[in-house]
Design a protein around this nucleic acid. Structure first.
Lengths: 246, 246
DNA sequence: TAGTGGTCTAGACCACTAG
DNA sequence: TAGTGGTCTAGACCACTAC
């Protein structure tokens, strides 16, 4: 099933079969041919479809499972991963309490506004400067305390009527997925310590200039395109950001 | 090769063969029977040794490779991973410049002192309070600027003559490995924003109270025992801590 | 050329889930 | 009981490395 009919010696090496199968599967996810929550055909059926052996299909499936794009359950089947609360909590939210336990924060929406992308926003979201965007501000609570002041920017083109929704859910990525068909596959976070500005200081109940942990996140869709830029300024008096190094 | 001769129905499930093989291999790493940099027997030889098929051995090897405990190179062989600079840089050091490029910091040793574990140190290192420890302070530079004020604590029992070494290398984990046979397998980092105290402020050339990124790391050996506690306070004016979320 | 890891296949059997 | 994923095996061939 070598799909790279490519005998130019200067061309890049043909990928192994399982990688080609994996790429085809990712295409089906991107195109929406396989939708979140949906069950995939069985390994043997997939092997017939792609004209490879079951072992090769399995290797592609294992890889996609490792990337959290698929979920496999013995006896039930293979499913396209969904952005449920569990995933939001364990893959995209790293603030934990002193006891090391994760808690999903409550959110209070402060504002949702349409606007035009500035230089930094255009850069982060790979848009042209002046492209229409939607900006969201919210305050998030952990253990009943205001802890995170958050600013979110998304391209209006991808989420046309987002600004019109009155109530946004606490975990946005499942909304992106279900309502707009945009699947967040991965993200890059950049952390720094910054002094609280007047606005955040008031929101979080600290003095201006108090140290805050700034989490600057770019979230990427399945195809690698940036679709959300989020800056969270966090009070780390009672919580911390946890990283496990392999 | 089921090694769990365990037919008590209340006992935990027998692990799959490849997991048992993997556990045996980890034992060889812990015991020093396979030392860092050493070449392992070939897949077929290992399959004979453990009396399983080559495919099962491969699955165990793949898993250990994914955990960065082994390195495999086609045509050459399978080797026990070493803590070289590359690994220090890519797995254990997450501070990058504005351009996103990693640089290994230069280190200036401030002090090395023997002492007795306090409550927090004993807690972090799973020692008894009052157990002998070694405390190290150093200042680290990135791009020629003093950027990280670091305090390290290790149990004296594991690193007996560490305090007597005049010059410590920049990357400590390969020293731990080569001189003391202690292999750092993974680590947990807890990040918070803190105000600079007088001492760190002077070291880093900022005003007291300026926001610093505090990285509180516990490093674990192959057997899961904590062997180093390290607190790094970082200036994040020109650098940030980068995390990739799968 | 010999030896290594990397890929691919084919088939058997087990464990779990659902009806 | 039928269908699914999970494990295990056996063997073939390829690609890379060292000698």
């Amino acid at each position: 099933m070598d799909l790279s009919h490519d005998h130019d010696p200067a061309a890049p090496k043909a990928q192994p079969l399982y990688a080609q199968v994996k790429a085809l599967m990712v295409q089906r996810l991107i195109s929406g041919q396989w939708r979140p929550g949906e069950m995939l055909p069985s390994e043997f059926r997939l092997a017939e479809m792609f004209r490879v052996s079951q072992g090769t299909v399995r290797k592609a499936l294992d890889s996609l499972t490792a990337e959290n794009l698929l979920v496999r359950r013995q006896g039930r089947g293979t499913f396209v991963a969904e952005h449920d609360h569990h995933r939001a909590l364990f893959h995209f939210f790293h603030l934990v309490g002193a006891d090391g336990e994760r808690r999903l924060p409550a959110s209070r929406l402060l504002s949702v506004r349409k606007g035009l992308a500035g230089r930094l926003e255009a850069d982060r979201l790979a848009l042209d400067r002046g492209a229409p965007v939607i900006r969201i501000r919210r305050l998030r609570e952990l253990d009943g305390r205001a802890t995170i002041a958050e600013t979110l920017v998304v391209p209006q083109a991808l989420f046309p009527d987002l600004a019109a929704i009155g109530e946004l859910p606490n975990t946005l990525y499942d909304l992106f997925e279900q309502r707009y068909g945009v699947i967040i596959a991965r993200a890059v976070e950049r952390l720094a310590a910054v002094p609280a500005d007047e606005r955040d200081a008031k929101l979080l109940g600290v003095a201006p200039g108090a140290p805050l942990l700034e989490i600057d996140r770019t979230a990427l869709a399945l195809d690698g395109a940036p679709v959300e830029w989020r800056v969270s300024r966090c009070l780390t008096r009672n919580h911390h950001y946890r990283v496990d190094l392999g």
